[in-house]
Simulated scan of single mutants.
Amino acid sequence: MEDVEITDVNEDDLLYEGNEAPLQNQDLNSLSQIAGAFLSQYGWYLLVVIFLVYLIIQHLNKSSSQRDRNAVLVARNQEAMEASRRKMQEELNAKAAIFREKQKEQEEEKRRQKIEIWDSMQQGKSYKGTAKLSQTTEEASSSSAVLKPKDKKPLRNADYNPLTGQGGGSCSWRPSRRGPSSGG
């Protein structure tokens, strides 16, 4: 008998020789078997892990959006505080300017009074009378209401004497002597 060579044609019209097996990708076949075995053993665990990762990602997205909103609120609050601080600083600067003007006026008034006193001393007059006169005119102009002197009444009876212990009522308590306590 003669040796016959058998050729096989598969679906792709490729020729195979008799002893050779059809070409297959052994890596993909073994990988699919490994993946199938892994999923059959750990499929539920993998599904739970994927679900937890999804929940964590959703939570992080929510918290980041809240942080963004909070950052906007914080920025607005800081801007409002800064505006309030600027307003307060402007008011303070205005008050300080008014105070400086008053100080200058007072210094000018004191300088004017010293000049008047010096002039009166040069003329041989008493400077105390002129100084008192100018102070009373300033006080009269600054105060709008005239204060009446109050009647003074005594705090204790006239017959009260703390040294004798009489006249102060029925209480005769005296404080104890100061110093370290005696005892053993």
Rank of each mutant, 00 (worst) to 15 (best):
Lys104Pro: 00
Tyr127Ile: 02
Asn77Phe: 14
Asp27Gly: 04
Asn161Gly: 04
Glu116Trp: 10
Ser144Leu: 09
Thr137Leu: 04
Gly168Leu: 00
Arg177Gly: 01
Asn70Ala: 14
His59Asp: 04
Gln122Ser: 08
Gln166Ile: 10
Gly168Glu: 01
Pro149Gly: 05
Asn161Pro: 03
Tyr42Ile: 01
Ile98Ala: 13
Lys152Asp: 05
Arg76Thr: 05
Ser182Val: 10
Pro22Trp: 02
Glu116Lys: 12
Leu14Asp: 15
Gln26Arg: 01
Glu82Tyr: 07
Ala21Val: 06
Met88Ser: 11
Ala71Leu: 07
Ser141Trp: 04
Glu107Ser: 14
Trp44Cys: 10
Asp119Asn: 15
Ser144Trp: 03
Lys132Leu: 13
Thr130Glu: 05
Ser170Thr: 03
Ala145Ser: 09
Leu163Asp: 12
Glu116Val: 13
Thr137Glu: 04
Ser172Met: 03
His59Asn: 11
Trp173Leu: 08
Glu101Gln: 15
Arg177Pro: 01
Tyr45Arg: 14
Glu138Thr: 02
His59Tyr: 08
Ala21Tyr: 08
Asn157Arg: 15
Glu91Asn: 09
Gly129Trp: 00
Ser126Leu: 03
Met88Val: 09
Asn161Phe: 07
Ser32Trp: 06
Asp159Ser: 15
Lys125Ser: 14
Arg111His: 09
Gly43Ile: 00
Val48Gln: 14
Pro149Thr: 10
Ala83Lys: 12
Asn161Thr: 07
Asp119Pro: 11
Met121Pro: 00
Val53Thr: 13
Asp27Asn: 04
Arg69Trp: 11
Ala80Gln: 11
Ala21Gln: 13
Ala140Ser: 07
Met81Tyr: 09
Ser141His: 05
Phe38Tyr: 07
Val146His: 03
Cys171Tyr: 02
Ser40Gln: 08
Ile34Cys: 03
Gly18Tyr: 08
Ser182Gly: 11
Lys152Ile: 08
Ala71Ser: 12
Leu39Glu: 10
Leu23Ile: 04
Gln135Leu: 10
Lys150Ala: 03
Gly168Phe: 00
Gln166His: 09
Val53Ile: 14
Gly184Tyr: 02
Asp151Leu: 05
Asp68Ser: 14
Ser30Leu: 10
Ile57Asn: 12
Asp3Glu: 13
Tyr127Gln: 07
Glu105Asp: 13
Asp13Val: 04
Gln89Met: 09
Asp159Phe: 08
Arg178Val: 04
Gln41His: 08
Arg112Thr: 11
Ser182Ile: 11
Glu79Cys: 09
Ile34Leu: 08
Tyr45Pro: 12
Asp159Asn: 13
Ala131Gly: 01
Leu155Gln: 05
Val48Pro: 01
Ser63His: 06
Lys87His: 10
Gln103Trp: 11
Lys102Gly: 09
Lys110Gln: 06
Asn61Trp: 10
Leu60Lys: 11
Met121Thr: 07
Ala21Met: 11
Ala75Met: 05
Lys114Gln: 15
Pro175Gly: 02
Glu90Ala: 13
Trp118Met: 13
Cys171Ala: 04
Ser126Gln: 05
Tyr42Asn: 12
Ile56Val: 11
Arg100Phe: 13
Glu11Asn: 14
Arg100Glu: 15
Leu133His: 01
Asp151Pro: 03
Asn77Leu: 15
Asn29Thr: 08
Glu108Gln: 05
Met81Cys: 07
Gln66His: 09
Val9Met: 08
Leu147Cys: 02
Lys87Tyr: 11
Trp118Tyr: 14
Pro154Ser: 06
Val4His: 06
Cys171Arg: 04
Lys128Leu: 11
Lys132Ser: 10
Glu79Gly: 12
Arg100Asp: 14
Asn157His: 13
Arg112His: 14
Gln89Gly: 01
Leu52Tyr: 00
